[in-house]
Design a protein around this nucleic acid. Sequence first.
DNA 1: AGGACAAATTGAACCGATCCAAGAAAAATG
DNA 2: CATTTTTCTTGGATCGGTTCAATTTGTCCT
Lengths: 351, 351
Amino acid sequence: MAKLAVKLQDVAKAAGVSRGTASNVFSRPEIVREEMREKVLAAAKQLGYAGPDPRGRMLRAGKVNAIGVAGAWPLSYFFDDPFARVVMEGIGDVCEEFGAGISLISALDERQVSWSIQSALVDGFILFCMDHGSHLIQMTRERKLPFVALDFPTAEPDVPGLWVDDLAGARLAAEHLIGLGHREFAVLALPATESAIGPVRAERLLGSIYTGTRDRMRGYFDVLATHGIDTDQVPIYETDNDEATTRAGMDYLFSGGRKPKAILAMSDRTALTAIDWLTERGIRVPDDVSIIGFDGVPEGVRSIPPLTTIAQPMLDMGRRAARMILDTKQEKTREVVKLTLVVRGSTARPS
Amino acid sequence: MAKLAVKLQDVAKAAGVSRGTASNVFSRPEIVREEMREKVLAAAKQLGYAGPDPRGRMLRAGKVNAIGVAGAWPLSYFFDDPFARVVMEGIGDVCEEFGAGISLISALDERQVSWSIQSALVDGFILFCMDHGSHLIQMTRERKLPFVALDFPTAEPDVPGLWVDDLAGARLAAEHLIGLGHREFAVLALPATESAIGPVRAERLLGSIYTGTRDRMRGYFDVLATHGIDTDQVPIYETDNDEATTRAGMDYLFSGGRKPKAILAMSDRTALTAIDWLTERGIRVPDDVSIIGFDGVPEGVRSIPPLTTIAQPMLDMGRRAARMILDTKQEKTREVVKLTLVVRGSTARPS
DNA sequence: AGGACAAATTGAACCGATCCAAGAAAAATG
DNA sequence: CATTTTTCTTGGATCGGTTCAATTTGTCCT
């Protein structure tokens, strides 16, 4: 069961040839005479040689043929989070095309991050930042391998990356509802700081450390204000983007005397939970209340009703990021990707 | 932008120390005198040394600290398929615990497989076989690294692996429906060969090359026959485990004069599609028709109605497989894992 | 047979580090 | 001050291959 330590050297000796020839037998068989080749192959078989060890080959070649994907979350998130999953699919497509592998890296705590990043056997990194990532970026830069940041709209201008235009996206969402004739809004927000605190005022979100939260908030209220809505009267509930806090948020938003007829949710996850909450209480979506999400998660297609949302081109983002790393000809740049309004069944004119 | 070729050697020279000392500065800083250490660190910084290259370290150490997960499907499947995803979460948990990375390997076509398997930089493999995998196993064995096969109930006794008891699981499903009083069955089957062909007789499935298909079929009919049901009269439709063929199957099953009141679906995926199909036609589940799935996919919890199913302990399987590879103390064995009946809302007494 | 040219083989250098026995320097002891 | 310890440092060996210039072998032609 223990791994046999048969190496190329041994095979060569057994076959009575030089190491160089033995190497050629495996990596460029066409240049060695058939007779020799067979002798070496026979020796290899007899010794139980498993073929050239990729470690040695790789050290020489300098290429690993794999790309590392790091995110500041547990590994399981890659398979669990709808956003991450679709991006990963895109990355997978391109890796396949280039014959490269994917290494998943968890960058949860700082200590571990720096170690994982420093010791990952990859040719480049895709960083899933989601805002918290400046430390991640710092570490990665020190590794001196190509990398691309995803969704990290950092101020540093020399970080190659891809991110979405949250501001424009949020505007799209608000304009859609306004266009339908809505006037009574509520916002289900993402956290402004480490963890959410419940009912809040817009100012808190506008000053958020997370650009996503900040820009989406701004986009919403810009549009509402432009259309003469008193944004001070629009209730906002800050969620942790999970089911529990979203439900608490819905309890809050619908507890007052004036109930909203249009909900701007900063994520599909909260939007979908909100739909569940409403449906359970017999409030019809979109007849009684319209909801628009944000992200364009696949679940939104199959929900009842299907979710109207602002879609991020996740698959495409994954593909582009992977290309930036694998396609060496391609330049690594900072690109802003456009969000699109996807109208499905969760929004309608107010009754 | 090009990677600087600064190596330990250069740093050592610049700092005026030996390579050995320079190495120690990075990997065992405590054994080198502070003065030296600073000198080396300064030189490293000045030269822009990115720290010890993991490739060199790894070659020496002989360990890569990563585990390869290979499946006979596109990489995107890892993030798309509900079953694979949950197993991956389990694998991820354990990898995190051991500080190991995950490398995803696509083993789609033969040529590519052998290359990927042979050149993957990993300490061991988890093979997602799903029946097609004997070639995959062969290749992996040649690599002489530890590996575990998942769901590959191969006859070869010396392949360490984990697989489910499909036969017992299928019995559980059939017994559940019989227990509720059902007598009018239909089966939504998985493919018996490369691709499904529509309405079939049990014999075809019982002779399937896929043990999953075969054993599930056998489990169902064993129980039905035991309870005096004429299995020849039970319609069976072979699907490709996707939406299109499942819908075609439903069309078929409900086109005849005698409509089934209980559906045995060999996968949750088909079961969920079947529920959609029925609901769209105003046929109530479970009031008019009961459905039981197979797999225990997460989506089943949130479907309407929630899906009664035979659950595979996917998370646990992933965890155990990963442990077999990473925990060197642990023996690699062949283990059969138990399936459990999870009763949710898609089954009820016949009306 | 001799010479020219092509094809196959060799052996050393290299990829980038870690490890370890042995030697050197510093500190402690008599 | 000489001697013994203790603490660092050194250089060579090693991990497992690939590559390439130089050399050997083989083929072909006259």
